[in-house]
Amino acid sequence: MEPKKIYGILSEKFGGKIKQFVENTLPPSVLVETDAIADVCRFLKEGDGLDFTSLMCLSGVDLKEQGRMAVVYHLHSMKQKHKITIKVELDRNNPHVQTVEQVWPGANWYEREAYDLLGIVFDGHSDLRRILLPEDWEGHPLRKDYVYPKRYHTWDV
């Protein structure tokens, strides 16, 4: 199915919650209202003819200039063989978004990673801990304004 058509189905179902369709990204992306993301994802997975079986990738992006953060979901359907990108934009000072762990269990670790490296909080996540960095690490390194620490415990960095 063409991404444009998927966008059409989504707008029909969710109306104003679907904000924008951006064609020049690869794969084309749909910008979704933050509070609707879990419902949209569930619909994408279970909806007729959509069948987005798997979450290829979930990334957090720090958009410092706009004062926002983005969470990008790259979805893919092995049954229908189509792809789409879903995006949500969050408030940079207090980034909160619903988890999609219940939709694709594999999102668990991706969300933990986004939390770890960017500080995005996924509401409803079952086990939101740091994953790559030590549990007592301070700050979120992938933020653009991250200050590099001089020391970690007894080591000079």
Binding site: L26, C57, S59, V72, H74
Partner: peptide, 30 residues
């Protein structure tokens, strides 16, 4: 612009999500 490209690696699909802001360095590489 931004692209998400994947390739079949021996261990599965390796994907790069690359955002460019037009400079010589990637804005974000996942």
């Amino acid at each position: 612009g931004e692209v998400y490209v994947r390739a079949e690696n021996p261990r599965g699909e390796l994907g790069f999500y690359l955002i460019s802001d037009g400079s010589t360095k990637p804005y974000r590489l996942k």
